[in-house]
Computed example of a mutant assay.
Amino acid sequence: MIVVTGGTGFIGSNLVAALEEQEVGEIAVVDSFGVGDRWKNLAKRELAAVVAPSACIDYLNANKQKVEMIFHMGAISSTTEQDVDLIIANNFTFSLALWHWCARNQVRFVYASSAATYGDGSRGFRDDQTPDALAQLRPLNAYGWSKHLFDRRIIRLASEGTKPPQWAGLKFFNVYGPNEYHKGDMKSVVAKSYPVAAKGETVRLFKSHHPEFADGGQLRDFVSVNDCVNVMSWLREHSDVNGIFNLGTGKARSFADLVRAVFSALGREPQIEYIDMPENLRDRYQYYTQAEMSRLTQAGYDRAFLSLEDGVADYVKRYLSQMDPYR
């Protein structure tokens, strides 16, 4: 059995779909659905169980002879969430409980870290997992800090011998793709701009408030969720690979490029207007992210990543433009 926490969410539900396609056997999801259409992210899947997070450890104990691997995608992922106690309870304390359970029971463990751990990027985007290198990072928000706190703790535990038989943390950069529709303001700019562009209207992007970046020229490492799933599938097939790894494309592109790719996928000329960024975001806004991908390639991952244009076109044509946009 493979267990996916956060399996009703964006990346988690895409992973569940891929695992089912790979015929891995039983899949259990640990998550809550809440209200709304989030259930549609899993509506096409066959599942062995759907477990509330509060019952997760009890479920694992009851099924420890069957559980072979945990993909821990569950988290409070909003970068604007203000309840730090809630963030720590989910992103650090619960994650640490899963780490120790996997270490005790010799179960493989792959978890979601985040590029938000890099803060404003002034210290670079190298996935150096040494304690000294991690200590230099300064996340800009409580979400990024909670992920960084967990990264630092498990590196220490692993160095002391308290670790699962395989473990990997993935620092996801700016992920886009199907099943992100429940995320509200945290949806990708692709998902936000598509309905506007599809109606032939003007897409709005933030102006730059940094002298080195033009309006719309703010840069991100945009990565398709398909590539993220491919990396996680590869980790499942390579149990000897351990460590914290960046997960982006290694190529920063602008928000203007992203929106132009949406218009191109629709066969339309781009229409973009630039508006002021809210003042409360300006002092903690990242103007540039780009994953350093050499550690993952050195570990043996050699599959090419989708270009921005190809990834956005796939998302628009196979999902966003369809009556059923879910994977």
Rank of each mutant, 00 (worst) to 15 (best):
I2K: 09
V4L: 10
I11R: 11
L15Y: 15
A17K: 10
L19F: 12
L19Y: 14
E21C: 10
V24E: 13
V24Y: 09
K40Y: 07
K40R: 15
N41A: 03
K44N: 10
V51S: 01
A52Q: 12
C56F: 08
A75E: 02
T79R: 14
T79K: 12
T80E: 13
E81T: 12
E81Q: 15
D83I: 05
D83K: 13
A89C: 05
W99A: 11
H100Y: 14
S114Y: 02
T117P: 00
D120Q: 03
D120Y: 02
G121K: 09
R123Y: 13
D128I: 00
L137W: 00
Y143T: 04
Y143D: 09
H148T: 05
D151M: 06
R156V: 04
E160R: 09
P164A: 07
P165Q: 02
P165G: 04
A168V: 01
G177L: 01
P178Q: 07
N179E: 05
G184D: 14
G184A: 15
A191P: 02
S193E: 02
Y194T: 03
A198L: 04
S208C: 08
S224M: 01
C228K: 08
M232V: 10
L235Q: 10
V241C: 06
T249P: 04
F255T: 05
R260A: 15
A261T: 05
A265W: 09
I275P: 03
R284W: 07
Q286A: 14
Y287S: 06
A291E: 12
G300T: 05
A304Y: 06
A313N: 03
V316D: 04
L320C: 05
L320P: 00
S321H: 08
S321T: 05
Y326R: 13
